[in-house]
Every structure is written in structure tokens, then in C-alpha cells.
């Protein structure tokens, strides 16, 4: 279980840095959805299943769709 925890946290940090470094905003939104999914699993391992449920529904679902809706209204690449 400790090995899985370490792998998840390392992947979480990689995702968080990659969101900040990516110039393509659509790619950044997709990486951010992966970040939210990892975060939901981590909440579940921290014995907080209600927060995990909310994170999986809001972070990985609704926020991603709202960001993609905003990107379709503006431009895709960061200046």
C-alpha cells in the first residue's frame, strides 16, 4: 500500500508541474483531469470517501467540461 501511495504522489506532482508548463491549453485541461482523478484516489486512501466522491464528480467531470467550453469560446494556445 505504501508503494502505491508513493507512486500516486509522484504522479500527482508530475501532473501538477506539467499543467503549469504546457502551452496547449486543451492538453493542460486533460492533464488537470488526470490530476483530479489521482487526487480522488488519494482522498479515498486517506479515509475520506465523501471528498473522493465530490472530487471525482466535480474535479474530473464538471470542471473539465466547463474549461473545454471556455476554450472553445476563446483561443487554444497560450501566448
Amino acid at each position: 500500500m505504501l508503494i502505491l501511495n508513493v507512486i500516486l504522489v509522484i504522479f500527482l506532482i508530475i501532473c501538477a508541474v506539467a499543467v503549469e508548463r504546457t502551452k496547449d491549453l486543451l492538453g493542460a485541461v486533460i492533464i488537470f483531469a488526470a490530476y483530479s482523478l489521482i487526487m480522488a484516489v488519494l482522498w479515498l486512501m486517506l479515509q475520506a470517501p465523501d471528498i473522493a466522491l465530490t472530487e471525482a464528480a466535480i474535479g474530473a467531470g464538471v470542471t473539465t467540461i466547463l474549461f473545454i467550453g471556455v476554450i472553445s469560446r476563446t483561443r487554444r494556445m497560450e501566448k
Binding site: P49, D50, L53, T54, A57, I58, G61, V62, I65
Partner: peptide, 16 residues
């Protein structure tokens, strides 16, 4: 576990 906010988010996602 869960409650109004989580369940409401799931219901809203179904209509999305």
C-alpha cells in the same frame, strides 16, 4: 458518505 453536494453534482453531470 456523500450528501447534497456530491449527489447534486452527479445528477447535474448526467444532464451535462
Amino acid at each position: 458518505p456523500g450528501g447534497g453536494f456530491s449527489g447534486g453534482a452527479v445528477l447535474g453531470s448526467s444532464m451535462i
